[in-house]
Amino acid sequence: MMTQNILDYDTVALDDEKSALVIVDQTKLPGKVEIISLTKQEDIHRAIYILQVRGAPAIGVTAAFGLYLAAKEIRSDTYDSFYAQFKKAKDYLATARPTAVNLFWALNRMDDVAQVNAGLPIPDLKEVLRQEAVKIRDEDIWGCRSIGEYGLSLIKDGCGILTHCNAGQLATVRYGTALAPIHLGRERGLNFKVFTDETRPLLQGARLSAIEMVSNGVDTTVICDNMASQVMKNGWVQIIFVGCDRVAANGDTANKIGTSGVAILAKYYGVPFYVCAPTSTIDMSIAKGEDIVIEERPAEEVTEMWYKERMAPEGVKVYNPAFDFADNELITGIITEYGIARPPYTESLKQIFETKKNAKK
């Protein structure tokens, strides 16, 4: 059994001295806390793909650190040669997963820095890239805490909260997004009753959200995904917080498969449904949810993973999308680090970015 507290570790970190990306291996949770150091680009790519590190913000930070480490290893005296190898490393990491916009956002941000500073000596350019990756990490921590503050303003002591998948500290560097209000509330002595959907087929709710909540002393109940309706009908849930992997300009939100069903149930039962979304996950270039690329994952995650023996017959077809999207009309509000956006999202999300722009002046 696990003896260490998972909340004592940053989910993603940089060991610059050893040129390593340091992550909590989430495939080993909840039974074991294993911290692994990755130095090869192939291992960093694989860690994203097989979900050793997952959650949109954490993937973004991982990509930034990973690309910096790739740049650090480049042996070149000319910018053109350096940038060609840098771009190759960027393009490689970008193939790890298709849906979470943070992966591409972080890689493009690092790319922009590399191009803007083309005139620097290569060692200085590498240092600027390191600083940018660390900045992305620091912004993630600040942004999650800010989201937590806004979310905490919507709940009170004793509140019943339902969440789907894991958008907690394990999906970010610290605090999380959807679970940040709960973690901050616990810091202030508040108590909540949290229901974590099991979240099939990868069980991030049962394995990851539950371990975070239990580690923080939260009254936590794991429910199978098809039990959410009954829990809401019982009146046990006053609010729903979920994370997201990408938000379209109209407020349609892609999140772990099953989220749309939760949103539909919440609408029926009159339970407020909030999406916790750092602005890095809001993709204003995507008009609507149907335009978001939905990742499909291996059939074995449904038929074999978590079972001692195969649980479905050989040859059966399996449809295994990793995400679905909740229509904007089902969403009560989108909580960002710069405030809570409310319908109509085509206007309120623009205002959020305007607030962000003004805050950076």
Rank of each mutant, 00 (worst) to 15 (best):
L38Q: 07
S153C: 01
F192C: 03
A180W: 13
I44K: 02
A167N: 11
A94D: 14
T259M: 04
K361M: 09
H164F: 10
Y175I: 01
E212H: 10
Y49N: 01
G258C: 10
V271P: 04
D124T: 03
F273M: 04
G55A: 03
A96N: 05
G217N: 12
D197S: 10
S260N: 15
E309C: 01
I182V: 15
T11Y: 04
Y79A: 00
L208A: 07
A359S: 15
V22R: 12
G243D: 10
I335A: 04
A13R: 10
L190N: 01
M2H: 12
E34A: 06
E295V: 02
K40A: 13
K361Y: 07
K126Q: 10
Y9I: 01
E300L: 08
A20F: 07
R137D: 02
T346F: 02
L330N: 14
Y274G: 02
E337S: 06
A84R: 15
P201I: 00
L203R: 14
Q238D: 15
A106T: 00
E198K: 13
H164L: 04
R145A: 13
A248R: 06
D16N: 14
A359N: 14
A64G: 11
V231E: 09
L38A: 07
Y9R: 03
P278I: 04
Q26W: 11
V53L: 04
I335V: 04
E296R: 14
F195T: 00
E187K: 15
T259K: 04
I155V: 15
Y150I: 00
D197N: 15
P298S: 09
I74N: 12
P298Q: 03
P298R: 10
P30A: 07
C159L: 00
R310I: 02
G31Y: 13
L7A: 12
K88Q: 14
A63G: 10
R200K: 14
Q4I: 05
I161E: 04
V318N: 08
D80Q: 14
I240W: 10
A71T: 05
K156Y: 06
P98F: 05
E309G: 02
K28R: 14
E314V: 12
D111A: 09
